[in-house]
Design a protein around this nucleic acid. Structure first.
Ligand SMILES: [Zn+2]
Ligand SMILES: [Zn+2]
Ligand SMILES: [Zn+2]
Ligand SMILES: [Zn+2]
Lengths: 192, 192
DNA sequence: GAACTAATGTAATATTATTACATATCATTG
DNA sequence: CAATGATATGTAATAATATTACATTAGTTC
């Protein structure tokens, strides 16, 4: 048996994704988080999370699959979907329903390497709110979500509906892209 | 111009879905609504809407396809998806992203046959909020949505994000199903 | 190390959705 | 009415997303 307790990172043969230092720190942070929840951050899961963290826009399952193939292994869909399920369950990523694609939980992005009291598990597991830009494809996780959740909770309370998870997805044009689309046809006004 | 304004109903050969009187009234209402928007309620679209109105839970595109086959025609996927696109654009149905399935806009369900001032186009086009029951599969469109939308608008305002559409989907257990699941394992507490 | 559990590999298939192009239907107008 | 152009539908093929079932491997416990 391997005494070296080889670090549960990408295997020597395929850690060639060249994850930046910043992302490697985030991956370590994530590993600690799910360790605390009794989860194991395996190489597969780590690679998938790393790829999602690296991307600037939501990543689809088959995009991940393609990228993973460039590495040593030749994974099939179940491999990716299993890794995604794990990451979702541990609050490390979110699924954008409208895009059938995945983004990292924003709490991983902000470096607070040892602040486990503010982990995703407590703040946004099973519930998240997003702004999706149609122009650049960027997705922003809304930080001041409690207000939205409070309204939803109050509505559910009135209807005796037991909320287990909730997703809010707003589609439109982000601040950076607004100038580009201005004057062309003008984005539709907000609903209602 | 056609004076007879021949009713855009299912063609004689295939109106055998047996839509109830109530649903036929809703279909007529819908026809008026989209006529007002310059849209044509063709037999295909009418049949698809009728099937969605008839179902008690969200209906998938391929479910619709199967049901349509029992009628005279032998439609293919594009037929259904085109009808769905039309109905979505005219605010007559909504897509539940989490289920890849479709429900009627609740404004069609409440009979107000001639009140076009309160049509879907004005109240919920491009934006809707739902409670999805995991137990019975039922979906409820939230009526007092303005509060949710107001919070979202305020958030978007702060971030200079131009909202074009928004969807809110809350998953959990509805009032009717709560007794059934009580004591088994208990639904997870609400997020946050 | 045996036994158990968790994770991964593998092949096949299921489900949802779109593309591209041909045909038909409807409204307008000469 | 015939020609036209726009809208809608038919059809075949394929793309994109996701799951099932079962075999194998790796980690953990005893
Ligand atoms: Zn999050
Ligand atoms: Zn943008
Ligand atoms: Zn509606
Ligand atoms: Zn229910």
């Amino acid at each position: 048996m391997n005494m070296q307790t080889r670090t549960p990172a990408s295997s020597p043969a395929d850690n060639g994704y060249g994850f930046s230092d910043r992302i490697q720190r985030q991956l370590e942070h994530a590993a600690h988080l799910c360790a605390g929840q009794g989860g194991r951050m395996t190489p597969q899961r780590r690679d998938v999370l790393g790829l999602i963290l690296t991307a600037t826009t939501p990543v689809g399952a088959y995009d991940l699959l393609e990228q993973l193939k460039t590495s040593g292994r030749k994974p099939a869909p179940p491999t990716v979907y299993r890794a995604l399920d794990f990451l979702l369950e541990h609050g490390l990523i979110h699924r954008i329903e409208r895009l059938s694609a995945f983004v990292p939980c924003t709490h991983l992005q902000h470096d607070h390497p040892h602040d486990h009291s503010h982990g995703p598990a407590e703040t946004c597991l099973h519930s998240a709110q997003f702004l999706i830009c149609r122009s650049c494809g960027g997705v922003t996780e809304i930080a001041d979500a409690p207000r939205v959740l409070d309204v939803l909770k109050s509505i559910c309370g009135k209807k005796n509906f037991t909320m287990q998870s909730a997703s809010v997805e707003v589609e439109g044009v982000c601040e950076d892209c607004a100038p580009a689309t201005r004057g062309q046809k003008g984005p539709a006004p907000a609903p209602n």
